[in-house]
Amino acid sequence: MKWLWWVLAGPTLWAVVFVAVYSAHGAVCAPIPGPEGLTTGARLLLIGIWILGVVAFWPLLRAVPTGTGRAARLPRWGAWIGFFATVFTLFPVVFTTSC
């Protein structure tokens, strides 16, 4: 069962970062809806959360069981899937969106 948690850790972390960025976007946009709502500070906050999320994969990628064979490969791949999903899906959000 522990092995299954390792496999799911990467995608789960992606989901957590997604929720964090989405919530922060909602919070910073709530006072001033509209294109001018996302101030430089607010955007930096979003980028900061995103970078924190990306960096959070570092300990996961280091801690994930190493070794050869399928049982070791799958948790590693799970972590990398989460990492790339976080980079790819949240990059446009923090850099290009407005309120």
């Binding site: 997604f18 989405y22 976007h25 946009c29 899937i81 999903a85 790819f88 899906t89 949240l90 990059f91 446009p92 959000v93 290009t96 969106t97 407005s98 309120c99």
Partner: peptide, 19 residues
């Protein structure tokens, strides 16, 4: 819907082609 949702869900919809 907000631009943020457009950006995220568009990226995620493209990404799902990978797996």
């Amino acid at each position: 819907i907000p631009h943020m949702a457009l950006a995220f869900f568009s990226a995620a919809s493209v990404l799902v082609a990978v797996p």
